[in-house]
Amino acid sequence: MTADITGDLLSYADTDAMHDEFYASQWTDGLPVVAPTEERVAAMLGGRDGDELLGTMPPRWRRTYVHHVAVNAVLAGCRPDYFPVVLAGIRAVLDIRLNLYGVQGTTNPAGVMLVVNGPARTELDVNSGHNLFGQGWRANATIGRAIRLCMINIGGGLPELGDMSTLGNPNKYGSCIAENEEESPWEPFHVERGFAAEASVVTAAGVTAPQNVAILSQDPVMILDGIAGSLMPGGANLVLFTAQPLVVIGPVHAKHLARNGYDKPSIREYLWEHGTIDITDVGGTDGKAMREWKAGCLHVDGTRELLRPSVAAEDIGIVVAGGRSGPHSAVLQPFNHTQLVSVPVT
């Protein structure tokens, strides 16, 4: 149905004609794209072997070569120096632990988000501060978009065909942030995950849009209870799914928590314990699904059935990010059987 975007060279009378045909061919996310000329693709590759096979991408299961990723990075508007981050992102999403097959085809609104750690954040100006989930930064906007365009053009994630999302979410145009390591009182996310501090690392998450947690108090328990209560509110993915959620703690909250002796492991433990919900009286289809799909998260305490957010506290990813201007954090709800996957930038 969809032509091979890396096939024959095409030529157009003008950019309007190109945009019209690319859109009609379903090679875009709906927005205009940058023409993937031979010169631009070569510059994006930067001497890399375009024939290197990275894997096959669901649900269309096309072979994914480095060249394909470069074409989509050009389409997205990436600068060539972003390409190593885009490539690491694609390697991460192709890792079976992310469950891209599920993320692409599900009726759920989940998409893919990248978190960048290490020197690449500053070298490429990936926003880790104010409005990092929003507009204004070329690296964030185009790296995230390149991943999405690969998911469309290589993976076949076309709405109502390879992407059955009922509602979708705005982050599906592309989502890429960086950890604000400078404002974090704790070890960087990638170091926690076993990488050297001087390494640049991309972590992919199969998640929905950020759900804001505004807690005005400086009391660490109030802050943590606010975040814990946002893990499994009614209808949230984590109520049904066994997966690894991502929590973004804003610098203001992080500072209050650190000042009171909390670090990432103790925060994880707190969220895991206090994010628990009581499903003893929940019946019907949802109750059955909770007990079966989250069996590994179910704890029986006397006569009560308690559901933890995740199998283990260690499953909760914590990133410090955002600006210093407000008391906000966020929870990103994961899709089912989705794990956080980290890949070094090379």
Binding site: P59, R60, W61, R62, G156, G162, M164
Partner: peptide, 14 residues
């Protein structure tokens, strides 16, 4: 039934 189209699309791709 929701995934009938994606199943056809996937099997064609495979």
């Amino acid at each position: 039934e929701t995934f009938r189209m994606i199943a056809d699309y996937e099997s064609e791709g495979l």
